[in-house]
């Protein structure tokens, strides 16, 4: 075989392999929208998205997913509330303050935290966080609060990892410039290095949001999963992901399609998050 032909063949193979992931995304899109959109049309866009009641087995059934949209947003916001301050401060500590010996403990611990399967997180939440919440704040213990706390822990490795590398890539000259003006180490880090890493840290937070909103197993185990609009942080809640998992097994017909449409809504959320992530990343490069 001639060299040129062989080169072409090889690059064609690489292209085909590289297109696998693109094809997968495309197929998922087609499947989701093809099976989800007709259901939304049948139910009515507004009644589906803004409907406050989800009673798929009533006659006639009612499919309103607003409680689940709110549920997903609430637990994600809660996770951000717990996870961002802890995550960002940890990354500052790791990048600029901690001794190498301590770093060698923290870093593997975080890698391990990132690798723990979500079902194990769920068990931890169920056995530890739920009883704890029940004892301290009353109620069943399965609530927005518990889910947020658990998700907050789960997104820590993502936020810390991205933030730490953003902090490390800040030019040392900013830090030195601040010290030369008489700033202490802490002040130099918090008022020059941290602001300079701002957009990188923000990108980490967005990735964390993506992880939190898509999380299913762990959330199901601690959130209570009542399909109604939550009335307080210590009340149960059902997320979009939980809604799909819990009913997919026995659903059929329009009910089934409505669940797929729930997946479409989730997909759109993730799409928005990814687009904002790349926007933030592009801005941080400039």
């Amino acid at each position: 075989m001639k060299t040129a032909t062989r080169e072409k063949l090889v690059s064609a193979v690489f292209l085909a392999v590289a297109l696998t992931s693109v094809a997968a995304v495309a197929l998922i899109c087609v499947f989701l929208f093809a099976s989800g959109i007709p259901a939304v049309g049948e139910i009515g866009v507004f009644r589906f998205l803004l409907g406050r009641e989800w009673s798929p087995t009533d006659v006639p059934p009612v499919f309103g997913i607003l409680p689940m949209i709110l549920g997903s947003l609430y637990v994600t916001a809660g996770a951000i509330l717990f996870g961002v301050p802890v995550g960002v401060l940890t990354s500052v500590f790791m990048a600029r303050m901690c001794r190498p010996r301590l770093y060698r403990v923290i870093k593997p611990a975080l890698d391990l935290l990132a690798g723990i399967p979500s079902i194990v997180y769920g068990f931890f939440g169920l056995m530890v966080l739920v009883p704890l919440t029940r004892e301290i704040f009353g109620g069943t213990g399965k609530s927005i609060f518990t889910a947020s706390l658990l998700l907050g822990i789960m997104i820590l490795p993502t936020i810390i990892g991205v933030s730490e590398s953003a902090l490390r890539s800040v030019p040392q000259s900013y830090y030195e410039g601040a010290l030369a003006l008489g700033a202490s180490h802490t002040r130099a880090v918090y008022f020059t290095v941290l602001p300079a890493a701002k957009s990188g840290i923000f990108a980490g937070v967005i990735l964390g949001i993506g992880r939190a909103i898509g999380e299913t197993m762990a959330v199901i185990m601690v959130a209570g999963n009542q399909a109604r609009a939550p009335t307080g942080v210590f009340k149960g809640v059902r997320t979009l992901t939980a809604n799909i998992v819990m009913e997919m097994g026995y659903s059929e017909g329009l009910h089934r399609e409505a669940l797929i449409a729930t997946g479409v809504v989730l997909f759109v959320f993730i799409l928005i998050i990814n687009v904002s992530f790349s926007l933030v990343k592009r801005r941080s490069k400039q």
Binding site: P171, S173, Y174, E176, G177, A178, A180, L181, G182, A183, R187, F191, T192, P195, A196
Partner: peptide
């Protein structure tokens, strides 16, 4: 005080750059 080889203004406004030291 010290001025470095490569100009190293902080990534913030002109005003905040000057005010950084006094604020410190």
């Amino acid at each position: 005080g010290m001025v470095f080889q490569k100009p190293n203004p902080f990534p913030m406004s002109v005003y905040d750059n000057i005010a950084f030291g006094p604020r410190t």
